[in-house]
Amino acid sequence: MDLDRTTTALLAGLFDPRNAAAWEAFDRRYRPILVGFARNCGMKDEGANEIAQETIVRFVEEYREGKYDRTRGRLGAWLVTIARYRMIDQQRRRGVAKVERGESAMIDLDDEQSVSAAYEAERRRGVLREALEELATKTKTDPKTVRAFEMLVYHGLSPAQVAEDLGMSTHDVYLAKSRVAAKLRDIVERLEAEYEESPGDWGAGGRPSARLDA
C-alpha cells in the first residue's frame, strides 16, 4: 500500500494551505463520490456538482479548524453529514417541498441510515472505478486478456464466442477471466486500504456540527 495515498496522508497534507497537491488528490478522490452520492439523493447533475464542491470546501475548513476528529467518526460520515445538510438547505431555499421531489428522489434525506448507505455504495463504486482505470492504464496486463475479461463480464458474451473473436482457446478465455478478476480484487483491496473506510465502521462515533449557515 502506498502510504502517501492513504486518506490519513491526504488529510495530513490538507493541513497546509499551500499544499495544492494534497488538495487536488483529496478532491479527485472524494468529489466524484460526492457527486454520485448527491445524484443518488435526487439532485440533478449541476446541483450535485455544487453540493460536492461546497461539501469539500466546508470539510476542509472544518478540518483545518480542528473540528474534524478522526478518532471519533469516519471521514465518510462527516462528509455525508455536511452534504446532507447542504442538500436539505438547498431544497428548502429553492422551495422544493419534500413531496414534490417525487420519483427523482431516490433517497429520503431524513433517513440517516439510507443516506449513509447511499454514500457507502457510491464510495465503493468509486473504488471499483478507480480499480478499472488502474487495470486499463497502469498494469501491464496483456490487452487481449483484459479484452476477453471485458467481453465475458461486461458484455455477457459466451466463452466460446469470446474465444472465437479473439482467436484464443476456450480454456484460455476462462483463465483470463479468472486472472483478471484476481488482479482486480488485489487492486480493490489495496485501494480500500488506502481509503481506510471499511463499511463495517459506519456510524461509529461523532458527527460534525450541524451548522446550516452558508
Binding site: V35, D45, N49, Q53, L128, A181
Partner: peptide, 26 residues
C-alpha cells in the same frame, strides 16, 4: 459488482468552481 460499475453512467464531473484558495484559514 464490477460489471455493474462498468455499465453505469460515468459521474458527470464539472470542472471545479472552488479551489483551496476559497477555504478559510485555520
Amino acid at each position: 459488482e464490477i460489471a455493474a460499475v462498468a455499465a453505469s453512467r460515468p459521474v458527470p464531473l464539472e470542472s471545479p468552481i472552488f479551489d483551496q484558495r476559497d477555504v478559510r484559514g485555520p
